[in-house]
């Protein structure tokens, strides 16, 4: 035999037990995957929608028109973010399994938590980029319309700006662009992050993407009923142990998506409470940690 003549290979280099670089590699690969699945095309659809509502005169006053444009465009952004988070995340892991890329990835020196984090980060990068682009487009659109309405208002007065015109301009500005709108976009992003982590948890044990998508959407919708659920159960019962437990379980298992609802107020021109932002950021972080740990719990012993 030729063993004596060939030299055996040297032991492999040491591997880090956890590596952000590997997470990053997986995230970028997920990003590439989503880009090449042509998911960015919906941005064009969004731009068309925006142009359509921007040039459609359905409101009686400039202030109302601006308010509608804001509501529709930011509503669309929010819808896109959470829906994309669910659908993209639910498709990714089953697809890797089907392609058997999961085998080759997990048989490299990669930890399973790194894989899950990589998928989550990849989806979030896509959502982050899309939301940023959409925000810039929206902001430009609103500011352009705002400037147009103001110019119109000034144009109607011949010589001096009357008090009436001043009031009209103020009203337009009040309904126009505000930097706080960025916070509403941030809220959409964080909401998408939480819903993506819920979807990852589901797809670590569900075998069908459709099931994962449906349950994720349900969790998302039910997650808007925290206050309602609390009130309902408290009113219906004498706080028996069973009800208390159920309520606790609901509050633990279903994330409270109401922490993001203040962003609707921002879009309508309300001022932002810094406390609400901090609460949102803190809870988002906590939810991400909890759901990723739960995902790892089912994924770490999963057999392929």
């Amino acid at each position: 035999m030729s063993e004596s003549t060939t030299t055996l290979r040297a032991p492999a280099r040491e591997v880090p037990l956890f590596s952000i670089r590997r997470v990053w590699t997986l995230a970028i690969s997920t990003l590439t995957q989503l880009v090449r699945m042509k998911t960015f095309y919906f941005l064009f659809a969004f731009a068309v929608l925006l142009l359509a509502i921007g040039n459609f005169n359905f409101a009686s006053s400039p202030a109302q028109a601006l308010s509608t444009v804001k509501k529709v465009s930011f509503g669309a952004m929010d819808l896109f973010a959470w829906l994309f988070a669910i659908v993209a995340t639910a498709l990714l892991i089953p697809r890797d399994l089907e392609d058997r890329t999961l085998y080759t990835i997990l048989s490299k020196p990669v930890r399973r938590i790194e894989y899950l984090l990589g998928k989550l980060c990849g989806v979030l990068i896509v959502i982050g980029i899309s939301l940023s682009v959409m925000f810039v487009v929206c902001a430009g659109m609103i500011q352009w319309k705002e400037a147009g309405y103001i110019a119109e208002e000034i144009g109607t007065t011949e010589n001096q700006i009357t008090e009436e015109t001043r009031q009209a301009i103020l009203l337009i500005q009040k309904n126009g662009f505000h930097p706080e709108l960025a916070i509403a976009t941030l809220a959409s992003f964080m909401k998408a992050a939480v819903v993506a982590s819920v979807t990852i948890l589901l797809s670590t044990f569900a075998s069908s993407s459709l099931f994962t998508i449906i349950i994720s959407v349900l969790v998302f919708l039910v997650g808007h009923a925290h206050t309602m659920a609390t009130n309902f159960w408290l009113a219906e019962s004498d706080n028996s142990i069973v009800v208390q437990m159920l309520l606790k379980l609901f509050k633990i298992v279903i994330p409270n998506f109401q922490i993001f609802s203040f962003s609707e107020g921002i879009v309508q021109g309300a001022t932002v409470m810094p406390a609400a932002i901090w609460q949102m950021a803190g809870l988002t972080g906590a939810y991400l940690v909890v759901f990723m740990l739960l995902s790892l719990l089912t994924f770490v012993d999963k057999e392929f």
Binding site: A12, E14, R100, T104, K108, P109
Partner: peptide, 12 residues
């Protein structure tokens, strides 16, 4: 992970 570091795998 150190075992996998020594392995290259080609699945079916």
């Amino acid at each position: 992970i150190r075992a996998r570091n020594e392995i290259g795998f080609l699945p079916e």
